[in-house]
Computed example of a mutant assay.
Amino acid sequence: MNIMLACCAGMSTSLVVAAMQESAKKQGKDYHIWAVEQGQIEDEVGNFDVLLLGPQVRHILRRVTAIVGDKAPVAVIEPTAYGRCDGAAVLRQAESLVNGR
């Protein structure tokens, strides 16, 4: 699975990405997880199975959903999981979105 995260500068989500990668590794899952700055989202459409936005950019959700269309689910990362850098919880959120739950 290809999971992309986006935030203002791609910096704060890099910590969440590292935690997600560690969680996926512990679970034996070979996922590609990366973060980008919000301005790069359009260039990445088609490269990810799910897009998660950092809570600080939740205001772009509607615009980004329109850009991505039906190519992948888009959601805002649950703020508590983001704040705690809970990679396992954010990974579960991504998997649920891809699996339609």
Rank of each mutant, 00 (worst) to 15 (best):
A6I: 12
Y82I: 09
A19E: 01
H59V: 15
A9V: 00
V68S: 05
L53S: 05
V90S: 06
D70A: 12
G100D: 02
K71S: 05
I41G: 03
D49N: 10
E95C: 00
V98F: 04
D43V: 12
N2V: 07
G28R: 10
P55G: 03
E37T: 07
S12H: 07
R58S: 15
V64Y: 02
E37H: 02
G69E: 04
T13V: 00
D30Q: 08
P79T: 13
R101G: 02
Q40Y: 12
L52Y: 10
S12W: 12
F48N: 04
D86F: 15
Y31C: 10
I33H: 03
F48V: 13
A88E: 08
R62Y: 03
L15A: 10
G100S: 12
T13C: 13
A81T: 05
R63L: 15
A81P: 10
V64M: 00
N99F: 11
S14R: 15
K71R: 15
Q93V: 14
A89E: 04
G39V: 09
A6D: 03
Q56E: 06
D70W: 04
G10C: 00
T13A: 10
I41T: 10
L51F: 03
R101K: 04
Q21H: 13
T80C: 12
A94K: 10
C7K: 03
V36S: 01
S23Y: 05
V68A: 05
Q21T: 07
V90R: 06
F48C: 00
S96K: 15
V98G: 07
K29M: 14
L91Y: 11
A35E: 04
A88Q: 12
L52T: 01
A24I: 08
I67H: 00
Q40V: 10
Q93T: 05
Y31R: 06
V74Q: 01
E44S: 04
D43T: 13
R58V: 11
A88V: 03
M20R: 07
Y31G: 09
S96A: 12
T80V: 15
R92D: 11
H32Q: 14
G69L: 06
V17R: 12
S23E: 13
Q40P: 04
L53N: 01
S14P: 12
S23M: 08
T13M: 11
D49G: 15
A6P: 06
C8Y: 14
L53V: 05
G39T: 01
S12R: 13
A35Y: 06
E44M: 11
V74S: 08
V74I: 09
K26I: 04
D86H: 15
M4A: 11
